[in-house]
Design a protein around this nucleic acid. Structure first.
Length: 435
DNA sequence: TCTGGGGTCCTAGGACCC
DNA sequence: TCTGGGGTCCTAGGACCC
């Protein structure tokens, strides 16, 4: 009898504890952070070249430091003492390319990212120019992300310099709307890397992304649901992540400039003019509604390599050169697939003509592969189906429909996968051929 | 002397199957 | 033989993001 009573009591207190826990959980408010490194590439370069602080610097172009002053200094370990006059200047740059990013001092001259180098050189000829060094940025990217993971386990990668973090159930994530945890992460990143970042914390990703821009650099901003009308609605529509230049232009034609203007439109009007799915999304976005979870891992869908030539090439006149580039792109994609452990069955090509118009062709094989020769063969077939009269400025190779290499057998098929027999209408094959 | 490279997702039409 | 709807896959292009 006593045992039975004790059991019941144990059960009862477990139930109470469980219920209490649920109450605590239910009082947790969803807090999502967006963290954005401040001027990431430029800041990483300044760690190497502190002598460039405050100067106009443009990072970009299509060149590698091989034989120049930067490479020699890197080899000697004297990067930080290169005299200013020895740095390459943008006015000496030759050829095609765009500015990937520019420091604040360069922006004062009107130089922006994604701007042609030649245009940037006219605006600020004395700007110092550095090549893009992705390996170095990736190194710092891994470093700051590992610091974040020490504080919060639910982190979603958004490229080299951005992440989303789910603060909801992290210690301190609820304090002051997330400010305490944001401060902690910010200072931990600075101690580990010497780099600053900006953080926005809000009820969802959409608002957190906007919030992280409010207080740059090295800032924190906290947004609550109640701040929608005061903080979000006055912003231009373009600030919404997912409204790009085309949609923004179209919205403006309807007289919609701010997010408030957008929120005033009825859902039916939006779906009529922007499509069922996008219109419905616009309706929700304008109201700050977004349920997307923070996703900690994802599988790649495709891998590709592409290159813009130093000067436009023609399929006939530059056949040999193009062929060599084409083969190299296939080999690079194959090596990427191999290194990361994937195989794919859709092989495609991309061409950009001298008039900047693009064309793509692809072909889905009935097997998976990561073999350079096979990719080259299939991509070659795609190339035959695209017009090649114009000169072309860019060539790309893509492999999609990826699965992990260890999921397929030696013949390149998934277990239990039926080969899909697609009877293509072949114009050369008349009905009479069957007789 | 315009306009990089690597991605994701959506749409729309056609083929094909049930 | 004709009609037809739903679902899936494939292809080409385009918007968008970092």
């Amino acid at each position: 009898m006593t045992v039975c009573w004790q059991l019941l009591r144990g059960l009862f207190s477990a139930l109470v504890a469980c219920a209490l826990f649920r109450v605590v959980l239910m009082t947790l408010v969803r807090r999502i952070a967006h963290l954005d490194m401040d001027a990431f590439y430029a800041s990483v370069e300044l760690l190497r070249y502190p002598q460039l602080k405050g100067l106009p610097v443009v990072i970009g172009g299509r060149w590698r430091r091989e034989d120049d002053v930067l490479a020699r200094a890197a080899a000697d370990g004297t990067l930080a003492s290169i005299p200013l006059e020895d740095f390459p200047r943008i006015r000496d740059y030759v050829g095609r390319g765009v500015s990937t990013t520019a420091t604040y001092a360069a922006r004062q001259f009107g130089v922006g990212s994604a701007m042609g180098i030649m245009k940037a050189a006219k605006l600020c000829p004395d700007a110092i120019m550095l090549p893009v060094d992705f390996d170095e940025y990736r190194k710092y990217s891994r470093l700051f992300k590992s610091v974040i993971l020490e504080h919060a386990p639910l982190m979603e990668n958004r490229g080299v310099d951005e992440v989303y973090i789910d603060f909801t159930e992290v210690e301190g994530g609820q304090q002051e709307g997330g400010r305490k945890l944001a401060e902690k992460i910010q200072s931990a990143i600075f101690s580990a890397t010497g780099l600053t970042c900006s953080v926005g914390v809000a009820p969802n990703k959409l608002l957190a992304k906007m919030a992280s821009e409010f207080n740059k650099p090295n800032g924190i901003s906290i947004v609550h649901e109640a701040d929608l009308e005061s903080l979000i609605w006055p912003l231009p529509c373009r600030k919404i992540n997912g409204i790009g230049p085309r949609t923004d232009e179209k919205l403006k034609r309807f007289g919609i400039e701010t997010i408030r203007d957008l929120a005033l439109r009825e859902q039916g009007w939006l779906t009529e003019n922007f499509g069922e799915s996008y219109g419905a999304w616009l309706y929700r976005a304008a109201r700050g509604l977004d349920e997307r979870p923070v996703v900690t891992s994802s599988e790649p869908v495709s891998m590709s390599r592409e290159t813009t030539f130093g000067e436009d090439l023609h399929a006939v006149a530059n056949k040999a050169e193009l062929g060599a580039i084409f083969t190299r792109l296939c080999e690079q994609v194959a090596a990427d697939l191999e290194r990361k452990g994937y195989v794919g069955k859709t092989v495609g090509i991309k061409i950009r003509y001298d008039n900047f118009k693009a064309a793509t062709r692809d072909h889905t094989a009935d097997f998976y592969t990561a073999d350079a020769k096979v990719i080259r063969q299939l991509a070659g077939q795609c190339l035959k189906r695209v017009p090649l009269e114009r000169r072309i400025r860019l060539l790309g190779v893509r492999v999609g429909s990826l699965v992990r290499r260890d999921e397929v057998d030696e013949s390149g098929h998934l277990p239990g996968e039926l080969p899909r027999s697609r009877k293509k209408a072949d114009p050369n094959l008349s009905l009479f051929d069957d007789l």
